[in-house]
Amino acid sequence: MIKSGLHFSFVLLVIAIALYIFFIKYTVKRGVPPKIRRIPGLDAIDEAIGRAVETGRPIFYSTGVGGLSGDVMPQTLAGLSLLNYVARKAAEYKASLTYLAAVPAIVPIAEDMFKSAFRENYKPEQILYIPTQTALMATVMGLYEREKPAANFLLGALYWETIILAEAGARAGAIQVGGTGRLYQVPYVVSLCDYGLIAEELLVAGAYVSKELSQLGSVIASDIIRAIVIGLSILAFVLGGLGFDISKIFRI
């Protein structure tokens, strides 16, 4: 019934899903949040919002041009989780927050988030819909130069626009927090932003800032699965050195 060559990966996927479900349910039932390591980039979010309030300058947030489909969807969702957090904090401290939306499907989601965070202070202009990547880059270059943002968040599935958004933010003197799981954009995020979140750091960001038990539970499962993957890699390496090619098992 299972397609040829996919047996091993299917079993691994089922184990992974089972572990995630178990640890999410277990953590929620236990009610005690697990300890996770400090992520400076996420701790800096509050600092950046505070700086925007002190200086009276705006905050800009972008999830890049990655949408809600395909393999980038989880990164966009993680970016939106953090947008929700930033919107609530900005509303609490009465900071000016603008979301640069480059994907039409995200606009209504962001509107809902802003409406529930800012309530009567919500203004439609807070969500700036810019339809293409080129237009986004052109808009940002001018907008950041004029508005001189205090904080710039680039969190999500970032593409080629990263360099423009991050460099424009750096030129404006904004405190920048960037994060993506897209491999080719990671160097730009790390080199141009004050705080960078690499790959899975972005995906656990929602858990980190919300401290929600279900999300924290999935972090434990990720660590266990990562240990399994590392174990399998070491086993393949050692056995490979001894002349046994176990990589064939992975392709059963």
Binding site: A16, I21, D71, P74, G181, E200, L203, S218, V219, S222
Partner: peptide
């Protein structure tokens, strides 16, 4: 790391 995070988000 991204693949694991993707599975985690899907399960959540």
């Amino acid at each position: 790391g991204v693949a694991l995070g993707t599975i985690a988000i899907a399960v959540r």
